[in-house]
């Protein structure tokens, strides 16, 4: 179901828990699918002994992918026209992430109606791990 301009207003939000208790195995899955095999994301020995991190941590792109799921669930499949993010905090195994989209504007580009959204993903402590923006085609 696509969003309808007539039923949207600026400030309206949609949020979803996009991962609960993130598992290291999911980082391995993401490495395998995406092709980003950086050992920082799957190799505990390398991440701790060589890189000096407390453990492995998530690919930024995994957080973006998880957040994208919230967006497509809300705006509908094939409706996104843009999606951009900044990675502002690391995501660790065990984290639970909540992603939220907020309507920033409803506009027209030619015959097309679009919604502009601001996007934020926070962890279980309320710390922001990613911020961003997206636009999607909506129905009148």
């Amino acid at each position: 179901m696509a969003l309808q301009a007539s039923r949207l207003e600026v400030g309206q939000t949609h949020e979803e828990v996009v991962v609960e208790d993130l598992k290291r195995t999911q980082l391995v899955q993401y490495s395998g699918a995406s092709g980003d095999y950086n050992p920082l994301h799957s190799d505990e020995v390398f991440a701790t002994k060589v890189a000096g991190y407390p453990t492995v941590f998530a690919h930024g792109m995994l957080t973006m992918g998880l957040t994208g799921k919230m967006l497509t669930n809300w705006v509908g499949d094939g409706r996104l026209t843009s999606f951009g993010v900044r990675f502002v905090g690391q995501v660790w195994p065990g984290d639970t992430l909540t992603s939220r989209a907020t309507v920033a504007a409803i506009r027209e580009a030619g015959a097309t109606k679009l919604v502009d959204l601001t996007v934020e993903t926070v962890n279980q402590d309320g710390r922001t791990v990613m911020t961003g923006a997206a636009s999607a085609r909506i129905d009148p």
């Binding site: 690919h59 843009s82 999606f83």
Partner: peptide
């Protein structure tokens, strides 16, 4: 160190990513 996807220890990390979809 990878340009877009991060990199080695303390070297490169992914700061931002933006996509424009002309079609899916």
């Amino acid at each position: 160190t990878g340009g877009s996807g991060g990199g080695g220890a303390g070297a490169g990390l992914h700061a931002e990513q933006h996509f424009e979809y002309h079609r899916h």
